[in-house]
Amino acid sequence: MSDKVKVTIDGISVEVEPGTTILNAARQIGGEIVPPAMCYYSKLQGSGGKCRTCLVKVSKGSEKDPRPMPKLVASCRTTVMDGMEVENITSPEVVEARKGVVEMLLINHPLDCPVCDQAGECSLQDLGFEHGAAQTRYEFDRRTFERIDIGDKIQLHMNRCILCYRCTYVADQITDNRVHGVLGRGDHAEISTYIEQAIDNDFSGNVIDVCPVGALTDKTFRFKNRVWFTKPVDAHRDCPTCSGKVTLWYKGEEVIRVTARKDEYNEVEEFICNTCRFDKKNTSDWVIEGPRAIANTSVISSNHYETLKPLPVIQQNPALMAANKEEFERTKKS
């Protein structure tokens, strides 16, 4: 007997270590049943639970206590129990709630992706494409802020921020002293370094990588190029402060950006230091490993999104087909 626990997500079973969250169990299965996550970041302790896009329905609590959970739960912060049954895209309720959350995230977010530097690698753009409505019902002025320079390399544009708190966790955990937090309350809350103090830390640049949207951007790269016209290449160097494993983004023969290596969930594999990120922009600084494999769902690699292939359980169920109708229709357009 292993001490692993069995959890069933949308009819697919998987055995995971006790203490795993539903989201991570779903990631072990992979595919369409993985709930989207805007605020959870597996490398940042304590993150998650805030954006509510990863809500799922627990239809059976566990083998011992089969009662369903009364409310939808945040899958990134709920740990699995043995025998738990979870419904993600097979629950019309979850699909509906997620649509609601996406709509909420977008009401104060500018809908100007064509001029945003993050376009093409923005989690919110993907999320909006996959789960959002085609039109906004919000008819009021969106909240606006002035752009703020955090040091000479990072720019903060609060208009685009969705308050996922990831960057504050980076400041808390990767950097030594806390220089970055949230001020204010409600929809006028803002990420701030307080009196625009520069973040003076070797790893501060990682706030750019963890930001799911275009709120924190790299000033050495801003508006140099659209990301889908650049060529990502894995490379490494012998760095005294970090692992030195990065992705170089080429335009022609020129390195125009250096980032950490991101996986299919847009999470970095290892955090890199500011020297690697901002100062080493010559091919001669690096040992090239080969092209970076980018998920083929990404616009960066293929210029189109993967079509949604509904699970058998959904195909047989008219109610679930109806709940996911918008998602299917969208992916049919090529």
Partner: peptide, 18 residues
């Protein structure tokens, strides 16, 4: 409620203002 929402999770932060 709009004034008092803490702004941590999105439905409440954005929805109360709306």
């Amino acid at each position: 409620y709009h004034h008092e929402s803490c702004g941590q999770c999105s439905p409440c932060r954005e929805g109360t203002g709306w």
